[in-house]
Every structure is written in C-alpha cells, then in structure tokens.
Amino acid sequence: MGLLKRNPFGHILFLKKWLIRIAGSFTHKRYRGFNQMHIEGSEIIRALPETNVLFISNHQTYFADVVSMFHVFNASLKGRENNIKNVGYLWNPKMNMYYVAAKETMQSGLLPKILAYAGAITVERTWRAEGKDVKREVNPNDTENIKIALEDGWVVTFPQGTTRSFKPVRKGTAHIILQHKPIVVPIVIDGFRRSFDRKGLRIKKKGILQSFVIKPPLEIDYENDSVDSIVEKIEYAIEQHPSFLKVIPADELEEQARLDKDRMWKY
C-alpha cells in the first residue's frame, strides 16, 4: 500500500489504518475487560462479499456502538469465533468499512473529527438540527456518498437516526436499499447504554454484559417490496418494532439477571 494511496473520499489509507489500530487498542478493554461482550453470528460476517453490504442496527450511544463494530467485524474476518480476544486482529483492519453519522455530531469536537476519518459518511439530518426539530430536503450529496461507499465496501447505518429506543425507522434507509440493492445484515446490540454515557466516550458502569447479535441477511424483493414493507422488516430485524414493547414478567427478568450473572466472565 502506497503511503499516499487514498479511498474514494480522499482519506489517506495509511493514516486511516494507524488510526484504527491506535483507537482499537485504546478501546478494546471497554468491551473485553471493564465489560464483557457476548457475540453471536461471526460466521455471517465471514460469508459476506467484499462490497455492497449494508448493516442496519439499533443505536444506543453516539460512538461506542460503531467502535464495537470495527472490533467485531475485524475479529470475525480474522477467524475469531464470536469473540474479540487478542486485539491483533486490528493490525491489518478492513479498510473499506464506513458508517453513516450526523454531520453535526462528527463536527462537534476534535475527537469526533478524528473518528470521522476512520470511515464516517456524514449526512445532514432532515428532521433534527442543533437540538431542534426541522424539516428540510435530503442533500443529494449525502445519498451519493452512501452509494460510493457501498460500491467500495461495507456501510453501517442506524436507521432510526437516534439513540432513543423504539423511535420510527427513517424511510431513507428503505430508499437506499431499493435503489442500490445491497445485502442487508441486521445487528441487535444491548448493554451499551448501561455501560457508557450517551456519547459512548465515558465508561459509566463496569461489569456489564453487552450483547452483539449479527442476524442472517434480510430477504428482500428489490423489485416488488414497497418502502413501507421494508421499513417494517427493518423494525422487526433490529427489534425496534412497537410489538417488542411489552411488559416482561418479574420472574422472567429475574431469570435473565441470573443468566447474565452466570455468563458475566465466561467470554
């Protein structure tokens, strides 16, 4: 790799690689040390093609969620079976991995700007800006950048566009799916909201069992499925459909707590 070789967005790959290595080394204990992460589905990652893959996930923190994906994806590709043991898997990380993030979030300070270099596709939110509700047209440059990223590799998006649970899935994700026909892989995460602050930068509580579940690709009829039907499929896939809002019996909660305690330090 030439020192000045760049990706389609002009980022120097040599710098990006070292950024991922350094950031990965500093953050590894956040998922395997201070806390533990239970992973399922690493074999699905290894079976995916090199390009045109769209990951959809629920969202719990600004940055910790996507950082965990860099760890899990690279560990899986290096043969780790549902674990992130030995951070050496980041020595030669996957370089064509991107994630969709709000432009104002990634420009909110020096650290976010540095993290953006690792692969952010920044977009202007059409419904929210500077903490206020807005209504504006989609920036065509944003959709074009997502297209470029899919043609180059993998893209992670959080289709609810917020870290708040059970908010509606934005239809823009469905439009992207119908237009570019990617393989769509759902991911469901949990425990990050309890582990970290809202930005995902500060450890709020230690000893949390985080979970990271990679599901098989969605079955989508790109020619006949409607935007609304794809939105509904996404809601079910990332477990954010309103039907998941239910009262869980106390005995079930107690049993889950017991299992979490049993599993706490086994990974």
Score class of each variant (00 low, 15 high):
K16Q: 15
V185S: 08
R30E: 13
V184H: 02
S25V: 14
K167D: 06
E239K: 13
K78A: 04
E137P: 03
V156N: 08
I44H: 06
A23N: 12
R198N: 12
R21L: 12
A174V: 01
R170I: 07
Q60T: 06
P249T: 07
D65V: 05
G131V: 10
P159N: 07
E223H: 08
E43P: 01
R170F: 02
N141T: 15
W91S: 15
N52A: 03
N139Q: 06
P182W: 05
F34H: 14
I114C: 07
R258C: 06
A116H: 02
K103M: 11
I208K: 09
D133W: 13
S229Q: 00
H11D: 13
R194K: 15
G153T: 06
R198H: 13
V66F: 12
F73I: 15
R6C: 11
I20C: 04
Y89E: 02
T163I: 15
T173V: 09
R21I: 13
M69I: 07
N224P: 01
F244Q: 08
F196D: 05
A120S: 14
K5W: 10
F244W: 11
R6M: 12
W154Q: 06
L4F: 15
K215Y: 11
Q210A: 09
N82W: 06
Q160N: 09
E255M: 13
F14L: 13
K135Y: 14
A257S: 12
I214P: 03
G79I: 03
I203S: 05
L111F: 15
S165F: 10
E252F: 12
S68G: 11
T105F: 13
S108Q: 10
I177N: 00
F192W: 06
I248Q: 08
A101R: 05
K233A: 00
Q36L: 07
R46T: 15
I84R: 01
S226K: 02
F55V: 03
G200D: 01
I183G: 01
N141G: 14
M37Q: 07
V184T: 04
H38K: 15
K246S: 14
D260M: 12
I248W: 04
T27F: 11
Q240M: 13
A120G: 10
K246H: 13
A75W: 03
G153R: 02
S243R: 15
H38E: 13
I45N: 05
G161P: 00
I22S: 07
Q210C: 11
P159R: 00
Y222A: 03
G33H: 09
E255Q: 15
L115N: 01
